[in-house]
Structures are given as structure tokens and as C-alpha cells.
Design a protein around this nucleic acid. Structure first.
Lengths: 138, 138
DNA sequence: TTACATGCAAATGTTTTGCAAGGTT
DNA sequence: AACCTTGCAAAACATTTGCATGTAA
């Protein structure tokens, strides 16, 4: 079911490089969105001597072809996840930082209403819930 | 209907300073969320020689007492708006950057479902729609 | 060979921090 | 007087850019 990184790269007409393959691998491994430092650490562990700049540029190329989504969870930095994941939203714990997914999204009808009313053409939305996860509620 | 800045400050047990009053004034003037540079420009225009650091700290004090909300609209910086505004969400134009409000929010039932299912205690949510505004659709 | 990708260093933009001085209650 | 707020300079982060070099197709 999971498509091989190399295949994903070819399908999107990108050049096949070690950094791209490894970053896709890492994204596939993680069900939750990752940041650039987490990616860097993974690359180091795999003994790929890479550069932060490269990570940003690889993510940018993935963004351009639509392979990944860029998220902002009020942390002062961005996170990235595969866009092939089923459409979902996030529960962000304000205490421990844990991020959970929720798959239920009933915003389509709301989007239609908005478009009719305001003539704003909605391309996508971001919906995040902030609070305390099960553990941090105590 | 609109409460005077000085009154808001007193009600929240903050010290009454020129920067705080002016920043509240500015927030009251703006229906859309503002960033720190826009605040700085307003202060300069009013001949209050203020410092960016002060702006951040004033906003922080407002945040602490709950006077303002801090928003992230995928711009690489934060925006702020009065939290006394009626609960609403934003339409962010990806072409011209214009921000519009939408007041219709039917997420309460969704929140209840999520809390039951995941035991995650939701404190608040952020919902933004990205796309093209009426003018930029052409 | 050609166009694109990478590494390094330096720059940029936003937000934060330390510390001394000033203002509010 | 006591405590909070401000100003300035410097630091801390995340992200971007320029340019020379390397590499996939």
C-alpha cells in the first residue's frame, strides 16, 4: 500500500537524491507531523551528512509538487506531513506538546456556505484543537 | 458599547501605561488581526516613541489576562486581535493577503464528540480557510 | 551536457532576554 | 517604597539567499 520513496519521487518528476529518499522515508515512518530538526536528526543517524538548508529545499520541492503539507501548530516553527494521509486535523496538547490526529472532518458543507456567501474561493482549511491530552488532564 | 482602553486595563489589574492604552486603541480600531509592525507604525504616528520589545511585552500581558488572542495565518509571524470580538474564523487570501472574518462556527458539537472519543480536553480551536478572495479570483 | 541539487557562509525576519533606568500605584 | 514596565543592545531561533561545486538524467 505504501509507495516507495523512489517511486514517489519519479512520479513527481523530481530528481532522485539521497536526501529526498531519506526524508520521504522519515515522513512515512511518522504518523505525526515532523519539524526540520527531527528530520536532521534522522538524516544524521543514517550517516547522511546533510545540511539544514537542503532539508528546507527538499521540503520545498515536495511542497511544490504537493507531496507534503506544511503545518503551523503555534510553536513558532513549521511542521510537515505527507499529504497522502487521509484528510485529518490535529489535537495539540498545550502541556506536553503531543500531537494527535482526528479524522472526522465535516467542514465541506460549511465551506460551500462560505463560498456562496462571500465569493471567497476556498482552496483548503486548517483546523486545530488546543487543550490537554488524556495524560496531561490528570 | 466599546469599553475604554483605560477601563479595560484597570479591569484586568494591569498598570496604566501609554503603550498599553495606545495598543488597545489600535486593536479596537482594527476589525482584522494586526501584527507587531502595524502596531509600531501606529505608535510612531501618535508620537509615542516606543520599542518593539515593549510591544511584544504589552501584547504578552494582554495575552496573560486574556484581553487578546494570538493568531498564526501561515505568514511566518503572529497577529493579534481583541478576544472580546465575537467568536469567528478567518478567510485568508493567498494572493493579496487580505483577511476577512466569518462568524459562523458550528464546531461545538464536533468538539464534544472529540472530547468523548479521545478524552482530550479542548480549550480552544483555530480554524482558517485559505484561498482566493473575491477580487483575486478574477 | 544541461539543468537541477547541494554545502557552506552569511543574511534576514521575528521574537526573546538581560540589565539598568523609569514610571505607576 | 515596592513592584512593574520600559528602552536599548544583544541573543536566540527559524528560515532564506548567494554562490561555487556536485550530480542525476
Amino acid at each position: 500500500m505504501k509507495i516507495e520513496p523512489i517511486q514517489l519521487i519519479k512520479n513527481n518528476h523530481l530528481k532522485n537524491t539521497a536526501a529526498r529518499v531519506a526524508i520521504l522515508e522519515f515522513l512515512q515512518k511518522n504518523s505525526e507531523p515532523v519539524d526540520v530538526l527531527e528530520i536532521m536528526n534522522y538524516l544524521k543517524k543514517k550517516d547522511l551528512k546533510t545540511n539544514l538548508t537542503t532539508v528546507y529545499r527538499v521540503l520545498d520541492s515536495f511542497l511544490t509538487v504537493g507531496l507534503v503539507k506544511k503545518l503551523e501548530l503555534h510553536e513558532g516553527k513549521y511542521r510537515y506531513e505527507l499529504s497522502s494521509l487521509k484528510h485529518h486535523h490535529h489535537l495539540v496538547c498545550q502541556n506536553c506538546g503531543k500531537i494527535e490526529d482526528i479524522e472526522n472532518c465535516s467542514l465541506e458543507t460549511l465551506e460551500e456556505k462560505i463560498t456562496k456567501r462571500s465569493e471567497f474561493l476556498i482552496k483548503h482549511h486548517s483546523l486545530e484543537f488546543y487543550g490537554l491530552c488524556k495524560d496531561c488532564r490528570k
